[in-house]
């Protein structure tokens, strides 16, 4: 009985030493990782919303539950008068062979400022590099679909549709 207890305590001791070691390493690397993650998030926003600037705008993530396709909404507000200037939508839709994740930025006059296909494993056509001709548009009339991949194009169209629709409600 006593021997088992000592064995258990030894194991605990090992775990403690290892934990201490980890915390030391974490103390060194933690801040670096944090800064990198923030930079990455800023870069992603910057890509769909070229006017975005950390110093003059604030970004707040807002709650949303109505539409299951919407992963997150980022509200970009001005630091001066707290008015909403952009809404950045991250949307998941099912395409032909995979789930397509898009980021779409809509401004306060409900125009699309920028968009990006973040991840997709669609089989036909390079959907990430395709220009859907939607920058500066308010509706889907001039949507330029990707030739040869009707299902994927339809999915992307749906993303724009959701973003345009909810921008009217969110701003």
């Amino acid at each position: 009985m006593k021997k088992n207890l000592i064995t258990g305590l030894t194991l605990g001791l090992f775990a403690l030493i290892c934990g201490l070691m980890l915390s030391v390493v974490n103390m060194i690397t933690g801040p670096i990782i944090k800064i990198q993650n923030e930079e990455k998030a800023q870069l992603a926003i910057k890509e769909v919303c070229p006017q975005y600037d950390m110093n003059t705008f604030d970004s707040v993530e807002i709650e949303h539950s109505e539409q299951k396709e919407i992963v997150s909404i980022l509200k970009v507000t001005s630091k001066e008068d707290a008015s909403t200037i952009y809404c950045i939508y991250t949307i998941d839709v099912t395409g032909y062979a995979s789930t397509i994740r898009m980021m779409i930025c809509v401004n306060s006059s409900y125009e699309i400022v920028g968009y990006k296909v973040i991840s997709s494993q669609e089989t036909k056509g390079d959907i990430k590099a395709h220009d859907f001709n939607m920058t500066g548009k308010k509706n889907l009339d001039e949507f330029d679909k990707l030739a040869g991949s009707s299902v994927s194009s339809k999915a992307v169209r749906k993303c724009f549709n959701i973003a345009l629709y909810y921008s009217h409600l969110d701003m």
Binding site: C18, N26, I28, I32
Partner: peptide, 15 residues
């Protein structure tokens, strides 16, 4: 022991 070594590598690499 192995798990903490791996975690150290992971954290260093991420940083």
């Amino acid at each position: 022991i192995i798990a903490s070594l791996v975690t150290i590598v992971e954290m260093l690499m991420q940083a």
